[in-house]
Simulated assay, not measured.
Amino acid sequence: MTVGITGGAGFLGSHIVDYFADNGEDVVVIDDFSEGTRENLSQSLSFVEIREVDLCDRQATIDSLGDIDVIVHLAAKIGGIGYFHHVPADIIAMNDAMNRSVFDAAVEHNFDRVCYASSSMVYENADEFPVTEDQIGETPPPDSAYGFQKLAGEYYCRAYHDQYDIEYSIFRPFNAVGPREPPGEEVGQAHVIPDFVKKIRDEKQFPLNILGSGEQIRSFTNVKDIASGVYKCASHDAAANEEFNLGSSDGITMLDLAEKIWNYCNREENFAVDQQEEFDHDVQKRIPDSSKAAELLDWETEISLDQSLDEYITWYKEAL
């Protein structure tokens, strides 16, 4: 099949591109390179086609996707918790425009499936853990613009299916970790692991500044594991018109995560932190139940957090 991957030059997208290409699929990367880079695609560059497209331009999107069978729609304005607070209007407006362009292209060209990248942030207001897919609709909608917009994208899937019979699959990745994600210029601009590595390894902070109490709990999932789950969402019959959590069920507090990274970076000082005021909407706990993906797609995580940290920090030292 010919697979279009929007946002395929980004951190998560490029790993998904690699996975699809390694499995012999014809891959077309659709990206405007406002965030992603061609360097991220170096592993698969000779095997994929690149189309530079602004997905906010509806007609340009439709015109560029005529030969696509399945589209994996990852492109979005995305970042860490700080980023969500800086540009909430851009997140709502631009991500909505990209969704409309891609789904209208699906109607125009009768794609076999739209595989939509949602987010664990749709569970922002969950209070029962681990979260299951059927909690959506029972849990209050997200407060953050990013979480709300990702949930709106899921409604796009169902609405275009109901009106136009567009087949879809929704995946909700939980805290991807792996190479190719640099830290941001400011705290919270990128995700927490790049932020911690930068502050611990490069800035040599002592004590380490952390947001909030540090008791926030997250699970982290290696990008390769997520990529394998996305491949199954895009290709398996059982994934049609379903939604899936893709994440590890092993949670860790931010204090324990920071101390792990502190030790990986061989800091001589005894680990110590300075608690900073946390951002609004900083979810205190996020742990998924991914048993649905295990049952229907035969998918589960294989790479531990320790392996993922070792892989990320090794890349960080070499690349940055």
Rank of each mutant, 00 (worst) to 15 (best):
42 S>D: 03
42 S>I: 01
42 S>Q: 08
42 S>A: 11
43 Q>I: 08
43 Q>F: 07
43 Q>A: 14
43 Q>C: 02
44 S>A: 14
44 S>T: 00
44 S>K: 06
45 L>E: 06
45 L>H: 00
46 S>C: 01
46 S>Q: 12
47 F>R: 15
47 F>K: 15
47 F>M: 13
48 V>K: 10
48 V>F: 05
48 V>C: 11
48 V>Q: 07
49 E>Y: 09
50 I>R: 07
50 I>E: 11
51 R>Y: 13
51 R>Q: 15
51 R>C: 12
52 E>Y: 10
53 V>Q: 05
53 V>C: 07
53 V>D: 08
54 D>M: 05
54 D>F: 03
55 L>P: 07
56 C>G: 15
57 D>N: 15
58 R>M: 12
58 R>S: 11
60 A>G: 12
60 A>L: 04
61 T>N: 10
61 T>Q: 09
62 I>V: 10
63 D>P: 03
63 D>F: 05
63 D>M: 03
63 D>I: 04
64 S>I: 10
64 S>Y: 11
65 L>Y: 08
65 L>W: 09
65 L>P: 10
66 G>Y: 05
67 D>C: 09
68 I>H: 10
70 V>W: 08
71 I>E: 01
71 I>L: 03
71 I>V: 15
71 I>M: 00
71 I>T: 03
72 V>W: 00
75 A>H: 03
75 A>V: 03
75 A>C: 04
75 A>N: 04
76 A>R: 03
76 A>K: 01
77 K>H: 05
78 I>P: 00
79 G>M: 12
79 G>Y: 12
80 G>T: 09
80 G>C: 09
80 G>E: 06
80 G>F: 11
81 I>H: 04
81 I>N: 10
81 I>R: 10
81 I>G: 00
82 G>A: 06
82 G>N: 05
83 Y>T: 02
83 Y>E: 08
84 F>C: 13
84 F>D: 05
84 F>G: 01
84 F>Q: 12
85 H>G: 00
85 H>V: 04
86 H>D: 12
87 V>C: 02
87 V>D: 02
88 P>D: 04
89 A>M: 08
89 A>V: 15
89 A>G: 02
90 D>T: 08
90 D>A: 05
90 D>E: 12
90 D>R: 01
90 D>W: 01
92 I>K: 07
92 I>P: 02
92 I>Q: 07
92 I>F: 14
93 A>W: 08
93 A>I: 10
93 A>V: 12
93 A>Q: 13
94 M>N: 11
94 M>P: 00
94 M>V: 14
95 N>V: 05
95 N>W: 05
95 N>A: 06
96 D>Q: 12
96 D>F: 12
